[in-house]
């Protein structure tokens, strides 16, 4: 699916990266522990998390991820959004909880 479809499925707000919504994505992961993302993630291109600090963007960048979805209605501060813009990473925010957001994307065909 495309990031645009993620936005629709999760009823998400686009925080940055509007110009990259047609990017194709195939896999995602959900975690609040960046250490585990770095340890267990292989080629996932979307990260769903409730963590808001700049290291979320940096972790995603190191893993060549394309999109971060902040769950539970969370939104990072302006500095984090700036960092994501710089790195070309799409940031989304959804009111859904981590489990629900992951479930919706999984049942709509996004792999783990």
């Amino acid at each position: 699916m495309t990031i645009r479809e993620v936005v629709k499925l999760l009823d998400a707000e686009i925080l940055c990266g509007e110009d990259r919504l047609d990017t194709e994505i195939h896999t995602a992961c959900g975690s609040d522990m960046m250490s585990d993302v770095l340890a267990y993630v292989k080629d996932q291109s979307v990260l769903l998390t409730g963590l808001l600090n700049p290291q979320v963007v940096r972790t995603a960048e190191m893993m060549d991820m394309l999109c971060i979805v902040f769950v539970r209605g969370k939104k990072p501060d302006a500095a984090v959004i700036e960092l994501a813009k710089e790195k070309g990473i799409v940031l989304l925010s959804t009111d859904k909880r981590l489990f629900v957001a992951c479930g919706i994307l999984y049942t709509n065909g996004l792999g783990g």
Binding site: D32, M33, M34, S35, D36, L38, A39, T49, L51, N53, Q55, V56, T59
Partner: peptide, 27 residues
């Protein structure tokens, strides 16, 4: 050892300190 960490609760709240740093570096 994977999972072993001396990191404080504060560090864990930042998303790190799962005891995966050195094992990851080795991997």
């Amino acid at each position: 050892k994977a999972g072993w960490s001396t990191a404080s609760e504060n560090i864990r709240s930042l998303g790190f300190g799962a005891g995966m740093g050195l094992p990851n570096m080795k991997n």
